[in-house]
Amino acid sequence: MNILFVSIPISLVLLALGVWAFFWAVRSGQYDDLDSPAYSILLDEETERRQHQRKDNDDQQGDS
């Protein structure tokens, strides 16, 4: 079980890295607004899709 003397310190180093990454994310304001990003992913995708659709429609009208 002496592997513990290596694996546990490694896990602690990873833990410290995780905490540091989280602190960085908090400091850069990523946790200040937790609601909007959930919407923007849906809204952005929908907007892109509609713009394509609209372009296709225009093309068809141009053809006919």
Binding site: Y39, L42, L43, E46, T47, R50, Q51, R54
Partner: peptide, 9 residues
């Protein structure tokens, strides 16, 4: 401006 998805959400 193509932002009408606003009305759905």
């Amino acid at each position: 401006s193509g932002l009408d998805a606003f009305y759905q959400f």
